[in-house]
Design a protein around this nucleic acid. Structure first.
Lengths: 117, 117
DNA sequence: ACCATCGTTTAGTGGATAGTTGACATCTGT
DNA sequence: ACAGATGTCAACTATCCACTAAACGATGGT
């Protein structure tokens, strides 16, 4: 099994059709050719660059971070954050790995408190 | 501080020379040509792939996460972790941004407690 | 003097990434 | 009937990326 998760292309096709946007219209808004869009939506081509994925997220009104994850990309601002404190952030992420979504939210709140001081 | 602004190439050259390892020897251990090594160390070429950066870190006995950060790369295991909970992890990282190293260590311990249950 | 070793220069390669163009069949409304 | 919009196919292409080969000049030891 490649992944239990839905593929990037399949997801955006479904969401696009749900919003009754044509493939050509979508392609135009993003700034790519319809052909390319078609191949991406059928997962025949890899997902496009970060800026285009963000643009898609905006059009489909879905979370950019989630869509970028589906695209197999780390949001560039997160990459920058990690770069500022590589050792501590790596440790944090590795420890946070395996926590549930709820626990992660709690942890974020904890971080927010430290910051708010 | 482990100088935040030093370039990848300059850093590994300094560390390599400090350990009295020849450029050719280093290149051989990593599995690249001396030519390439030379250019990388003078920051004329971009840092190599993750596996080679990790191999360099081991030879120079320095932190792989830190070296990968200097190389402008996000460790692939961290990318995977983010991918598992994109929304929560993105929120966590963005909130954690701006915290000091000490506060980040405290936060990691907090995460460890939630996990250790 | 010799030459081995050092890092460097010049020039190039093979594969991946991120797309494009133009023609094509298939529906849909008038 | 046919005009227009829909998605799709085959066939490129351009630019990076990650790296190599061969020859080069400077340095140090015997």
């Amino acid at each position: 099994m490649t992944s239990g998760r839905e593929k990037f292309g399949a997801f955006i096709r479904r969401e696009r059709e749900a919003r009754e946007i044509g493939l050509r219209e979508m392609a135009k808004k993003i700034g790519v050719s319809p052909t390319y869009m078609s191949k991406v939506e059928r997962d025949e081509f890899a997902p496009p660059t970060e800026d285009k994925v963000r643009s898609i997220a905006q059009i489909l009104e879905c979370d950019p971070d989630e869509l970028l994850a589906m695209a197999g990309r780390v949001p560039s601002d997160l990459a920058d954050i990690i770069k500022r404190h590589p050792v501590e952030m790596s440790a944090l992420l590795r420890t946070a790995n395996g926590l549930s979504a709820e626990e992660l939210v709690r942890l974020s709140r904890e971080a927010g408190k430290a910051k708010g001081k």
